[in-house]
Design a protein around this nucleic acid. Structure first.
Lengths: 152, 152
DNA sequence: GGTGAAATCCTCGGGGG
DNA sequence: CCCCCGAGGATTTCACC
């Protein structure tokens, strides 16, 4: 589908705050409430808007330790790859997992409570997965930027 | 603040879909609508819920090229660090930026249209920032997992 | 934590340019 | 095709138990 300037602005607004009423949006977009409603429905039906979620402040709950784990598999047979991806997806500590180019095969973003929790995660969960060759972990010192909003 | 089991489940539900009505939530939690309303308000006021956002499917817009950039600064004086972080935050292609431990200082997640757009980003935007020593980029081959929901 | 009612909002049929 | 108006039904919100 194609977007005009109004769609772009609407998407931007919804990425900032999806709980705005259509009335508020209609003011910001100089449209009627119905027009806003129809544009949003179109974005939802065309799969542009994937879903609406609440973002939790991780400092508010006791999880503020973020680690990035590079992982290399022992082999790259389809069977090993599929099994690894399936197992790693199940782990709730793993927020993101990407198959990437470079020296390692995967990059994981892991969120836990503290270093001790990370150690337990590595020993009891991650390295329990078969076919993992080597790992290399980096720890987050500070979060400079983190947005879910993508510009269009 | 402390959470009971109901709060935990409520947070889980809102992280999956924040547009559910309080009525739907009240059914899933075996509570009255008002009780749900008050628990949500408490989570918002205590800063547990940061915000409500729409997630856009990046395939639906023409941006599906993800790169991870490691960056090392030439120096680590406070002035250089602050300026780098300020400049990099401004870049709309940079979705995430973390100060990390290890061989490099920063890890960036960059979203652009394609490899050509990434080249332009590197040449015209990122390496235009002062005090960048070296960079090392990895490209996403496949997104195995990506969630904004954190378990509590 | 629950009840009830007012204020507000979502949703859609109908119509215009 | 994109937009607007208006009204019924659903939802949010709040004082009170």
């Amino acid at each position: 589908m194609t977007f005009d300037a109004i769609d772009s602005k609407l998407i931007k607004l919804l990425q900032e705050d999806c709980k705005q009423t259509n009335k508020e949006l209609s003011n910001k977009l100089n449209l009627s409430i119905t027009a806003v409603y129809e544009r949003i429905k179109k974005l939802e039906n065309n799969g542009v808007i994937d879903k609406y979620v609440a973002l939790i402040k991780k400092e508010a709950i006791e999880k503020s330790f973020v680690a990035f784990c590079h992982i290399k598999l022992t082999q790259h047979s389809q069977e090993y790859v599929i099994q690894f991806e399936k197992e790693v997806t199940k782990l709730e500590e793993v927020l993101e997992c990407f198959h990437i180019s470079g020296d390692y095969d995967y990059l994981l973003k892991v969120l836990v409570k503290d270093m001790e929790a990370f150690r337990e995660f590595m020993v009891n969960k991650l390295t329990n997965i078969n076919h993992i060759g080597s790992t290399h972990s980096m720890f987050m010192i500070n979060e400079v930027k983190h947005t879910t909003a993508i510009s269009i």
